[in-house]
Design a protein around this nucleic acid. Structure first.
Lengths: 192, 192
DNA sequence: GTCTATATACCGATAGAC
DNA sequence: GTCTATCGGTATATAGAC
């Protein structure tokens, strides 16, 4: 349930975002969305063409927010290593998983080009942004010049996405943190 | 459809394993299982108490097979680095995702302790096995003694699990391979 | 062991009153 | 814009014939 100040359309999008995060697309029914939003069937089909259309609005917003917050952390001041460390260590609701990454396991999302596009674009943008930072670190001599920036960026994002899997499997955020620490130890510039 | 040599019970388990991999628990209906197995309702409820019971048999078998094949690769001959590289590089149906890891995104699996246990146990065992190998590498001087074996193991498994996410998002195995190469570059012993 | 018939609830969507 | 009524189809399970 949401504040009465939020429009019905907004409440529908927000409740869909929550349910997609918790249960995925296949596991989210219009009925559940409506109950959480405190709306009736008519409202949903007035504002949206159907479940896929509403899900698209929800996914787009979630993708935008994730990208914006990730870029904010990556653009924080510091050395390239520190900026990547800040991204890896930033506060996360680890056991809930990644609201964007989890959609890749949803066959109905992956099968629909419209639903899939924001997921693809978000992860690609974050990888590209991290690759730029690694490249900068190579130029500054903080990272070995032999490293491939795109590969390191992929490893960084994969460690985060896989960390969610390990954490959820074990029921504890510890596994996520362990993976992050392991990667950072490998990435750390040699002390002098 | 399966060979007539396979019992109905076996066909039910095998078709459930496939569907859990493709669509997850929530997205897999008894009807779909029965169609793929070429069996009727009666057979399923004769051999299994219901959907959760059949899913448990399927998940247990998938978990056993994954663990066995992972251990086989990890125990192949070579230096610790080579054994971990063999694990990271082993042939995978990348775009299908991990049949065990994907279950962590299924709320109904995570909510049922019986269904969840094999998922947790499998990933924990693989992490522990890799940690042993890292420890061996530290003793042999191939890895820096400052590294934490458990953390490196977590990073290795997270890179694999997250690599599936990146690959599925982008629709190409390239992102998986990039992450693996990135991690291996960071893990590689210094050349002499 | 396997089949068909049946049951209750929910799915996603539409119609039309207010 | 929002509501309720209704729809055909499916989800999961049970009953009982063969």
């Amino acid at each position: 349930m949401y504040s009465a100040a939020m429009s019905t359309q907004e409440r529908l999008i927000e409740s869909t975002r929550e349910l997609l995060w918790e249960r995925g697309y296949v596991g989210t029914s219009p009925k559940a969305i409506l109950e959480r939003a405190g709306a009736g069937q008519g409202s949903m089909y007035h504002h949206f063409k159907g479940k896929p259309d509403l899900a698209l609005a929800a996914i787009r917003r979630t993708a935008e927010e994730l990208l914006a917050s990730a870029e904010a952390v990556l653009d924080s001041p510091g050395t390239p290593y520190e900026r990547i460390a800040a991204y890896l260590r930033r506060e996360r609701d680890v056991l809930r998983g990644c609201p964007v990454g989890r959609l890749t396991m949803d066959p109905d999302v992956m099968a629909d080009p419209d639903l899939r596009a924001p997921v693809d674009a978000t992860l690609a943008s974050i990888r590209a942004r991290i690759a730029e930072i690694v490249e900068l670190g190579k130029e500054q001599g903080q990272f070995a010049s032999t490293l491939d920036a795109g590969e390191i960026a992929s490893a960084v994002v994969a460690t985060v996405q896989g960390g969610y899997v390990l954490a959820r499997a074990s029921g504890s955020p510890d596994a996520f943190d362990a993976g992050v620490r392991g990667l950072l130890a490998l990435l750390a510039p040699p002390r002098r």
